[in-house]
Design a protein around this nucleic acid. Structure first.
Length: 666
DNA sequence: ATTAGGG
DNA sequence: CCCTAAT
């Protein structure tokens, strides 16, 4: 039968004239303003999470955890493990069509908990055990240490390297430790010959695949950063979490970088942004991008060695997030991309309008320890700061046990980058408290007092605005209602973390400082290097010299970091996405990608209309070649047939507009 | 900002 | 996926 061309391939009501003038059309970006009413699942989840955690913690002492958390969730599962063991709590929150899920692990702070630590201390699994037992406090640690020492436990089998602690788990404790491997990661120059040999974890762990690593975690309220917090869509493979709960685990990723289908949930942490913070963030950026400053990357520390073939930065912010002063700040963007990876620490000159003077390499006293920030007040009334290190909290990663250490590093790096992707906000801590008033002078704040020498701390927090770009992926709009999720998101970090971290430090160097602003799960800022103060949650160790990596120097004319733009992470289209695309094209034709985008991928910020166009191109190609030649997730032949049909139809349609004769519809 | 195509 | 030219 002959189709009326005006109605599209499938006769849908899509009058050609329906196209609004560009000026009135919606912007290509699907992002909504932070103010728009749509509730943010993340936020919701975050609050619930906090509540949950509090509850569990408070009830833990009375051994009455069970059954206390059901009410608050549409779906809640409390999987009880062996008495006294970790109890994973799975919470799923559904709100306005969006859902977010997260898994929380609570533990009983019972003696047995400590007992367990000790028990494991007899093996080479101390670290892991600590991870298992969130409640393992310093006291517990001391016991462990004492125990370890008294037992003269052998550590040779441990796969340890400085802060990179990948521990080999003895056969007899593999089971109990399972996925709770505590590891320390340290950002270090790629070139550093740390002697940390790349090795396959395969033989090191006997864990259920995949291995999940929880890197530090201030408060539950977050995402992988960072993984930053709550998640949406499908959860991790049950198998991986069912038995052995992890620490607060909010993110995940699968090896194929498939995406997590996050129904209707915006990845962007719009809900987390707060005006003040935003302003501060902007301020920082301005400062960084100001003509007076330039960031000089320490290439060695870049983390992306050319020799590593598979390095695929995945956060790379881009236009896909249509929003954001794209054209106008394209240049700035590139810079940001660069900054994103730079944790600027010190420099000489002024760091703030208060004309604070930072001087890192001045051989300042960096004595002992915990406090990574020190200051000296010189006679010239200038205060010099030396920031020793920063710590990145809360990164949740999941990798197959067959992953190599190298890939693990990359993953961590990616997560890190994603977390910092949106830029950072610098906070100042004094006596563990945030100094919020930017107007006050150092003197007024007491920062210039010698007494506060070791009580100063700096923290970097993710900019909630565009933090973690690649976390939750939206589903094609047509799938707004729940649709079974097939593949977990590639990167686990999630803007959600942003929220969690909102008030907790993302990066902190406070030694004896304690973030006292965050209620729930306040995390210890103890420097892990000091075992006696190790906090189970602080899995990331960023010992000493962390300032080396990057430095800010007075603007020069050399460095041209903008060349470090990375390629976006590859995200194969899922069948459902292809289906959505095909349907949209059938209706709209092949020359209206922008419309297709809105029609079927409005929520998938990572799919640009160009992506869709490209995908269609490849789909047409795929449909033409033999099934054996196709690669990747197989696309149902039925869909390919439709692709071909639609392609033919619209080709003719277009041709017809040029005077050719329309064709019959298949 | 979009579209169309080559790389 | 990226990049560009042309709209």
């Amino acid at each position: 039968m002959v189709k009326r061309l005006d109605y599209g391939f499938r006769g849908f009501q899509v009058p050609p004239t329906a196209r609004r003038p560009r000026s009135t059309r919606r912007r290509g970006h699907s992002k909504k303003s932070p103010e728009d009413g749509q509730a943010c699942a993340f936020e919701l989840l975050a609050s619930l999470a906090g509540k949950l955690l509090q509850e569990s913690e408070s009830s833990a002492s009375s051994n009455a955890i069970e059954g206390n958390h059901h009410h608050a969730f549409s779906h809640s599962v409390v999987e009880k493990e062996r008495q006294d063991e970790v109890r994973p709590l799975m919470a799923k929150v559904v709100h306005n069509g969006s859902c977010a899920e997260s898994i929380f692990t609570t533990e009983m702070e019972s003696q047995k908990s400590s007992q367990k630590c000790l028990e494991h201390a007899e093996t080479d699994c101390v670290l892991e055990c600590v991870s298992v037992n969130n409640s393992c406090n310093s006291e517990c640690w001391e016991k462990i240490e004492a125990h370890v020492n008294s037992k003269s436990i052998r550590w040779e089998n441990k796969f340890v390297h400085n802060s990179n602690r990948l521990v080999e788990i003895p056969e007899d404790v593999k089971e109990s430790c399972d996925a709770n491997i505590k590891s320390g990661f340290r950002r270090e120059p790629e070139a550093s010959n740390s002697g940390f040999k790349e090795s396959t974890l395969d033989n090191k762990f006997s864990l259920k695949d995949p291995v999940e690593l929880c890197i530090n975690s201030p408060a539950l309220a977050d995402s992988n950063s960072d993984v930053r917090s709550p998640f949406c869509g499908e959860l991790f493979p049950k198998a991986s979490l069912s038995r052995h709960g992890n620490n607060n685990r909010l993110g995940f990723r699968d090896d194929d970088e498939k995406f997590l289908q996050c129904n209707g949930v915006r990845t962007k942490s719009k809900a987390f942004s707060r005006p003040p913070r935003r302003i501060a963030c902007r301020r920082i950026r301005q400062m960084l991008t100001s003509k007076h400053w330039k960031v000089v990357p320490n290439l060695k520390d870049y983390g992306h060695s050319r020799t590593d073939e598979g390095v695929k930065p995945l956060y790379r912010k881009r236009k896909s997030c249509y929003s954001f002063e794209r054209s106008r700040h394209s240049t700035l963007f590139k810079r940001r991309k660069f900054f994103r990876r730079s944790i600027v620490i010190t420099s000489d000159g002024g760091l703030s309008s208060d004309s604070v003077s930072n001087s890192p390499n001045k051989g300042m006293d960096v004595d002992n320890s915990n406090s990574s920030a020190k200051l000296h007040v010189s006679k010239d009334s200038h205060v010099k700061f030396s920031i020793k290190s920063f710590r990145i909290p809360q990164l949740y990663i999941e990798v197959p046990r067959t992953a190599t250490v190298g890939s693990l590093k990359r993953t961590v790096n990616e997560a890190l980058m994603a977390m910092l992707g949106g830029g950072v906000h610098v906070g100042v801590l004094l006596q563990g408290k945030k100094v919020r008033d930017d107007k006050r002078t150092l003197r007024q704040t007491g920062i210039s007092c010698e007494e506060n020498l070791n009580k100063l701390g700096f923290l970097l927090e993710p900019s909630s605005l565009q933090a973690s770009p690649a976390v939750c992926v939206g589903e094609p709009s047509r799938f707004k209602t729940s649709q079974p999720t097939r593949s977990p998101e590639a990167l686990v970090l999630d803007s959600g973390i942003t929220d969690a971290l909102q008030d907790s430090s993302l990066l902190t160097n406070t030694g004896n400082l304690v973030e006292s602003n965050h209620d729930s799960t306040s995390f210890s800022t103890d420097i892990i290097a000091d075992k006696t103060t190790t906090d189970a949650r602080a899995l990331v160790t960023v010992p000493t010299s962390s300032t080396e990596p990057l430095a800010v120097v007075p603007a020069g004319q050399k460095t041209r970091p903008s060349e470090f733009v990375q390629r976006r992470i590859r995200r194969p289209f899922s069948v459902s996405e292809v289906d959505a695309l095909v349907e949209a094209v059938e209706e709209l034709g092949t020359g209206r990608w922008r419309d297709v985008k809105f029609r079927a991928f409005e929520n998938a910020d990572h799919r640009t209309y160009v992506d869709l166009k490209d995908k269609w191109k490849t789909l047409v190609h795929t449909a033409k070649i033999g099934p054996q030649q196709r690669r990747g997730e197989p696309v149902p032949q039925e869909l390919l047939d439709r692709v071909l049909a639609a392609h033919a139809y619209w080709s003719n349609h277009q041709a017809k507009q040029h005077g050719n004769v329309p064709k019959l519809e298949p």
